[in-house]
Simulated scan of single mutants.
Amino acid sequence: MPECNHCGAHVSDQFARVFADEYGHIRACPNCSANAGIAEVSKERAHEA
């Protein structure tokens, strides 16, 4: 089951297909970031890693 690499929360397969990077990492989810900013937060966290 896919999970957020930032907070460990479970996410759906559909969410993972949309927001995971090319390595399958999900750096932001609805549990640890605002829904409207998931893509932006994910990019910021990927840049910081």
Results as ranks from 00 to 15, higher is better:
2 P>K: 13
2 P>Y: 12
2 P>W: 11
2 P>G: 15
3 E>F: 14
3 E>R: 15
3 E>P: 03
4 C>W: 02
4 C>I: 05
5 N>M: 04
5 N>A: 15
5 N>S: 14
5 N>D: 12
5 N>L: 07
6 H>A: 15
7 C>W: 09
7 C>V: 06
7 C>T: 04
7 C>M: 09
7 C>D: 02
8 G>W: 03
8 G>L: 03
8 G>N: 07
9 A>N: 14
10 H>T: 11
10 H>Q: 15
10 H>V: 14
10 H>M: 08
11 V>F: 06
11 V>A: 03
12 S>N: 06
12 S>Q: 00
12 S>Y: 02
12 S>C: 12
12 S>D: 07
13 D>M: 08
14 Q>A: 11
15 F>V: 05
15 F>P: 02
15 F>S: 04
15 F>Y: 12
15 F>T: 02
16 A>C: 05
16 A>D: 03
17 R>G: 09
17 R>M: 11
17 R>F: 06
18 V>P: 01
18 V>M: 04
18 V>T: 11
18 V>A: 03
19 F>I: 12
19 F>N: 14
19 F>T: 05
20 A>F: 03
21 D>W: 07
22 E>G: 07
22 E>P: 06
23 Y>N: 14
23 Y>D: 11
23 Y>S: 11
24 G>P: 06
24 G>F: 09
24 G>A: 10
24 G>W: 09
25 H>K: 11
25 H>C: 06
25 H>R: 12
26 I>P: 07
26 I>T: 09
26 I>V: 15
27 R>E: 00
27 R>Q: 04
27 R>P: 01
27 R>C: 00
29 C>L: 10
30 P>Q: 01
30 P>G: 02
30 P>M: 05
31 N>G: 02
31 N>H: 13
31 N>E: 14
32 C>M: 10
32 C>D: 03
32 C>P: 05
32 C>I: 07
33 S>V: 02
34 A>H: 14
34 A>Q: 09
34 A>Y: 01
34 A>V: 01
35 N>P: 03
35 N>F: 00
35 N>W: 00
36 A>P: 03
36 A>W: 03
36 A>V: 06
36 A>K: 12
37 G>E: 05
38 I>Y: 01
38 I>W: 02
39 A>M: 08
39 A>T: 13
39 A>V: 09
40 E>V: 13
40 E>N: 08
40 E>K: 10
40 E>F: 08
40 E>P: 02
41 V>G: 01
41 V>L: 07
41 V>Q: 10
42 S>V: 00
42 S>I: 00
43 K>I: 09
44 E>P: 00
44 E>T: 13
44 E>Q: 15
45 R>L: 03
45 R>H: 06
45 R>D: 00
46 A>E: 11
46 A>N: 03
46 A>K: 15
46 A>R: 14
46 A>H: 12
46 A>V: 02
47 H>V: 05
48 E>Q: 13
49 A>P: 00
49 A>Q: 05
49 A>T: 08
